[in-house]
Amino acid sequence: MGSRSFSATVTNRGGELSSLDESLPEPTGAEVLPGESVRTSEVMSSLDHHEKGIPTSDAGLGMTIFDCQDVEVFYGSHQAIRDVSLSFGLREVTALIGPSGCGKSTFLRCLNRMNDLIPGAKVGGHVIYHGQDLYAPEIDPVQVRKRIGMVFQKPNPFPKSIYDNVAFGPRVVGMEGDMDEIVERALVRGALWEEVKDRLDENAFGMSGGQQQRLCIARALATDPDVLLMDEPCSALDPISTGRIEDLMSELKERISIVIVTHNMQQAARVSDKTAFFNVELAADEKSRTGVVVEYDATETIFTNPSDKRTEDYVTGKFG
């Protein structure tokens, strides 16, 4: 990818993509609690002074946060992905799309070394983050996960209070400061504060699925990561909850970089600046299936004018 910048891509939902917007109803009904009128972005601006070290100006735009070179993953003797070379821009949303089993999630889990936890998984190549190879021997994977947050496919709150869910990350990484304040800030950034501020002691299992997922996002934000990895975060949610999370993503993008795996091409088109299309390649023996990157470009280009036939077939719904 080199140093090409994609900052001038579809960040607003204009042009041809606007039709997709209509499939997304405005948030109404069950999830909107009475009295919720404060827009998340307004609250966020008042909390700006909490942000340490991460510039909020446009200074960083066009820079690269991740530079992956020839990443490959083996599960035992099976090669799950190979030759993945992608670089992600600072404070951009990058979508990874492709058919099932193409290794998108596997690749995503390389970015915060979650694959380390799978017995028999082996990662090759380089994942350069802020100029540092995350797979260098001196790197502590625990510190990596602290800086690079992750949200999973199925909401996975801890069976504890809402407060304890959010406070868990700051506590284990030893964050300093007033915990109440840290929890509030995270919940505000997760667009959940207004809904839950009066019931922080209640068990998170009592929330709706959409709320649980936003809690998981807030929980991930509590440790001030500068990247958020999202593994199909909306696949278990209804359209209204999905819409709220997509809104949230575009707000979060002002400060952090997001990499999102999604099955939903409309979602990729709505939220992302750049899109990488993964596909499955059959090995010569037609038995083992390995994921590769077919095409990586500005989201608009991928969806309107892809250069590869397979990409075109996939985004137009011919397979997948």
Partner: peptide, 24 residues
Amino acid sequence: MTPVTSTERERVRTDLVRARSARS
């Protein structure tokens, strides 16, 4: 590729390797 400023890089680097031996 445009790297982030070198001081930021250094900060990230020390952050990522910090406390590893004591913790492990």
